[in-house]
Amino acid sequence: MSDLQAISGARIFDGQGWHDDAALLTEFGHVSGIVRAADVPAHAERVTLAGGMLVPGFVDLQVNGGGGVLFNNDPTLSGIRTICAAHAQFGTTALLPTLITDTVPVNVAAIAAGKAAADAAVPGFIGLHLEGPHLSLARKGTHHPDLIRPMDAEDCARLIAARAELPNLLVTVAAETVEPAMIAALQAAGIVVSIGHSDAGFDVATAAFEAGATMATHLFNAMSQLGNREPGVVGAVLASPHVHAGLIADGIHVHPAAIRAALRAKHGTGHIFLVTDAMSQTGTDLTSFTLNGRTITRANGALRLDDGTLAGADLDMINAVEFMHSTIGLTLDEALRMAALYPAEAMGIADLHGHLGPGALASFVHLDDARRVSATWISGRQVFQV
C-alpha cells in the first residue's frame, strides 16, 4: 500500500480558494498538494467521495468539555481523549482543553494531563487554555468568585514552567489583575496571553496589549463594553490591529448586529475567530452538569446557572460556521477561515493548522452539500465518519 493518498470527488477549499475536479494528496500525515483529478499519481491510494466539500479542520481555542466530560471535573489524560473525540464529530481537528478558574491543585493536575496528552499524541490535542483564576470579580461570569485572585510571582513562574511541558499554552487574564511586566514575561516564555473577564478601561487594556497580550477571550462577553467616552476592553480590542479575538457565534452570547459591527471595525493582522466555549454536553444528550459545586442547566440552546448567568455555550464548531454564513451573511469561505485559519494564526500554529497548503497537517473535514460533517481526518487518519 502506498503512503500517498489521493482524496477526490468533492470540492476542495484550501483555506484561500476552491478547487474543482481536484484531488487532495496526503502523505505521512501531511498535505502534499492539490492536483487535478486527472493528474493523480498512479501509485497513490485513491479515496473517492460522493460530492460535498473538503475543508480545513476547525481549530477551537476554548473547549471546556465534551462527550460528557468537563475538564475541571476530570483533568486527566482520559478526560482530554474524550473531549477531543467528542469535538472531532463536529469537524474540530485541533483544540485547547480549557480549564475554568479553579484551585491550584486542579491547575497542576490539568497541566500534568496536558503533558501526558502531548506525550501520547492524542488526536486533536494541541495544548491547554487556562482561563483564570486571575480575572475581574466584576466580570466573573460563571467563574466562582471565591477562587478568583490577582496573579502573583509564584503563579507567573508556574505558568512559565507549564509552557515548557506543553506544545502550546493560552492563558486568559484580566488586564487589571496582572501587571504589564508579568504579561511581558509570559509572552517572552512563549505563552499566548488573552485578555478576558476584565472590567478594565481602554487605557489599561491597551497597555496590556502593548505589553504582549495578543488575544481577547470571547469578544463582548465578560468584558467592559464600548462606550462613547470610555471604549473599554471591547474598544481596545477593535482598535488594536495585532490583537485577535474569539467569538461565541450562537446568536445568544452576542447579538448579530454587534457581530456585524465588530467585523466591520476590526482591521489589521488580528482577526475575529470562532470558539465554541463548549462544556461537557457537546456530543451528548446531557441536560445538566456541575461546575465548582454549582448546577448548569442546558435549555433553549443555552447553558445557564440557576441565576440565569450564561455558563459556556451549547455550541459546536460546524454550527458556529453555519451561523456566521447563514445568519450573519459571511461568505462560506470567510466563515470557514474564522473556524480554521484565523484561530491557527492567533496561536502562531498556521504553519501546520487551519489550511490545506503543502506541508500542513492533513487535518480536514468532509462536509456534505448541506454543510453537515460527514467525516473528519486528523494528521491523515480518519477519526470520525457518519
Rank of each mutant, 00 (worst) to 15 (best):
D314C: 14
M324V: 12
P343L: 08
L336R: 01
R372M: 13
D351K: 13
P358E: 14
P343F: 04
H353I: 01
A340E: 02
G359C: 07
L330C: 11
Y342M: 04
L352A: 11
G348E: 12
L330I: 12
G312Y: 12
T327F: 07
T309I: 09
L361W: 12
H355L: 00
L305A: 07
M338F: 13
M338N: 11
H353T: 00
D333K: 13
Y342V: 03
L332N: 08
S363M: 11
L361R: 12
F364W: 14
E322V: 10
G359V: 06
G329A: 07
A340T: 14
A320P: 12
I328P: 01
V365I: 14
A344V: 06
A340L: 07
S363K: 10
L332H: 10
R372N: 14
V365M: 09
S326L: 13
H366L: 13
A313Y: 07
G329K: 02
L315I: 14
T309Y: 02
S374C: 15
I318L: 09
S363F: 13
M347R: 01
A362G: 04
D314M: 08
D316C: 15
F364M: 15
G348R: 09
D307R: 01
S374E: 14
H366C: 05
L356C: 03
A344K: 03
L336H: 00
L336F: 01
D368P: 04
D368F: 11
P343M: 03
R304T: 14
I328N: 00
H325K: 06
P343N: 06
A311E: 13
L315M: 14
L336E: 01
I328R: 00
E345D: 05
N319V: 03
D314P: 00
F323A: 02
D316Y: 06
H325E: 14
D307L: 05
D316A: 12
L315H: 14
R371A: 15
E322M: 13
S363C: 09
H355E: 02
D333M: 09
A340C: 13
T327G: 01
T327L: 08
P343Q: 03
V321P: 06
L356R: 02
G359D: 08
V365K: 05
G348L: 08
M317G: 09
L332W: 15
G354N: 05
F323Q: 01
A360L: 05
I328C: 07
D306H: 05
L367E: 06
E334W: 05
L367Y: 10
M347W: 01
A313Q: 07
A346N: 04
L336S: 01
D307F: 10
D314T: 10
G359T: 10
L352G: 03
A350C: 09
R372D: 12
G348C: 07
E345H: 07
G357A: 15
L361T: 02
H355P: 00
T331H: 05
R371N: 14
G354W: 01
H355C: 01
D307C: 03
L356N: 02
F364L: 15
A362Y: 07
L305E: 03
